[in-house]
Write a protein that binds this DNA or RNA. Structure first.
Lengths: 218, 218, 218, 218
DNA sequence: CATGAATGAGAATTCATTCAT
DNA sequence: AATGAATGAATTCTCATTCAT
């Protein structure tokens, strides 16, 4: 990478960092491009060399942040989509959720920012990028994980969708407002509900065996 | 009611109607107070006689719309919080959700508007007003419904919360974007998940009997 | 006076009181007619039954306040413009000033209000009204006072003017801002300066010695 | 100075000139920022690049104008604060006042503008700037002038204050309204009064004769 | 590439005044 | 006489975007 490219990358980073901070502090609406440029120590005109407008920046920022979170969570849970070891599908998913919830509790602004801006449509296209290896959409990883579990799920998309909506909806309220229960108190019932959704989505005849393994995490 | 008061009420209505239309058409951000006043055939200054600013109007509009929806849904399901007849708690709740979802499918702007703006905090304070009878917070009605069902729920607030988040999160995507399934295809799994959540929240020892009654609606 | 007239007078008083308070609290510019009407517990439209606009009210208010002050000061000093007793003209004037300054120190808002708004032109037309006796312009009283003193003043108007400007300019700063000295410390030098001005304005023959020293520059 | 800086300076000047003209013509209240920008042939938004608001501009304008006037007056009287030559302190001060009054008569808007807006507090901080030499607060120059005169003044601040208030109060009325005398007719008595104030403020021993006549009232 | 001065459309808000009740 | 809802002109201030340097 040439020096010029490095410099450009730094400017981009600076704009990202500044925007993230300001979006969380003042809200997107109240944040002007001027503000972002100033906090990034960059001229206003320079902003337009990197992003089309505020919302372009926001979208790119969300994609990056969401990708980071999923990647890190996958790393932390040593998620290996190729081997299922002895962990059940339920445990795998719940562990992932658990890591993410803990991260969100430590960084509520991240939560606020992503939840307010990430749609399901965008979610399906998040890539887990890695400087060295190729990038792979998270969504594909999810499907391989199910395939490798040997389980028969009626509609994996719908299952993921319901889990995502349930988790994201609940954690936003609980982490940011402590309502109606604490995160610690939410986890048990929430994970149980996730197990319920998975069980419901399992093709008849296979469920019985798995359910024996149920173990509530968190 | 005097003629003057009637006129005032009409103006308020006109502002509400105009704002609802514009918020849905152009989005709140792009809707100026000028726009609202113009569409309501009212002078700009008049707006400020009725609302503090755009967001004050929005909040009052949401409260009203949400109240309407819940009230109508309760009416349609002949919800009687005093007698549980032979309907189980699950059926009662699912029927309510079902009516609301159908309404939302018919009026997607209403869905977009409410979901984007109604927080759990605000939800808890929605009143179901009625010109004749007294108004009662929906939230209180829910608690009485549980009490009258004779069921023992560990944490009714948490249960409602999880159901509301799951339903609202799912229906927003499904109705507005048809993703990842149609509303018809969502209903079965969604209602099953609701039953699961209720069952999970039921105090041990009582759950078994109820579960026999499970019947997927929709 | 009829009951109706009394009611009207009360409304006028209420508007005066409210305006005086608000003008002093928020400044005339920031005080709207709405504010005044509200504080006076009167409808906005009612304001226009008593005053043309805000500035009309202000002018009438100043005239009344200034008149009150001069009248009260004259009363307190038992100023008798018909007999000079043994008090010298200087003592007479300085006593008047002294009473006024003390009053101003007790009511600095009054000072702020009047100084900011009373012009020399208006000052010359202030009447000392009295419910019982006739009203007489203060300005006429001043001239009679001089005549009765038996002193020969070159230009009584100029003399009064210079004294008024000196006193009002000084007391505004000193009382309201305590700058550059306290009122107590101002009084000595200020009264000395007043005596100087009077002496300078006395016709030759009575203050001949002084006049020899005068040398007009410029 | 770069071309850009020159252009900026010109814009600032244009705004100053436009504002000064409009403030004098229509009054500050009736002058909108739109007006100023238009008269300065500048976009409305540009105004805010140079000044926070109308009152920021006013304050800066006053400081500049007052500084100009004092500087020019000092130049014209060849005021040398280091040598007193044979001019007495009185003559020195009166000459300064005289130059200023003549200037004010030629530029009454300047007078109106400054007198209405310059407070004693601000006055004390006016700097006499000079592109070449360093800038020095006028106030310091005054104290050095007194020191160099070899005269003992009890309270130089109070003396300056009283003179400034007397002069500014009088000249405002006289120049702008020709009341109650013409400027020519005011000068003699006014300068005499200034001499009186200075004499009164002189420590005993040097003006002993005069002081015997003084009798402080109040 | 980078800058930041300039632009001007447009949004929010205020308020004196009118007028039907 | 009193009211206060309605008006809409006027004003302030913001900010995305452009472009000359």
């Amino acid at each position: 990478m040439s020096k010029l490219d490095e410099k450009k990358k730094k400017k981009r980073e600076a704009l990202f960092t500044a925007a993230f901070h300001l979006f969380n502090t003042k809200g997107i609406r109240q944040t002007s491009i001027s503000d972002i440029a100033q906090e990034a120590s960059v001229a206003k005109g320079t902003f337009y060399l990197y992003f089309k407008d505020k919302f372009d920046l926001r979208d790119k920022l969300i994609a990056e942040k969401a990708s980071q979170i999923l990647m890190q969570a996958a790393d932390e849970t040593r998620l290996d989509i190729n081997r299922m070891d002895n962990k059940s599908l339920e445990d795998e998913i719940i562990e992932l959720v658990d890591v993410i919830l803990d991260r969100m509790e430590r960084e509520p602004q991240l939560l606020r920012f992503i939840t307010k801006n990430l749609s399901w449509g965008a979610f399906r296209h998040i890539s887990i990028e890695d400087g060295e290896r190729e990038s792979m959409p998270f969504y594909d990883g999810y499907h391989r994980m199910i395939a490798n579990s040997g389980r028969k799920i009626k509609n994996p998309d719908l299952m993921l969708f319901m889990i995502v909506e349930l988790v994201s909806g609940c954690c936003y309220q609980v982490i940011l407002h402590g309502q109606p229960v604490s995160l610690a108190d939410l986890k048990g019932p929430l994970y149980q509900a996730i197990r319920g959704i998975i069980r419901d989505q399992e093709e008849a005849g296979e469920a019985g065996v798995e359910n024996k393994k149920i173990r509530v995490a968190g």
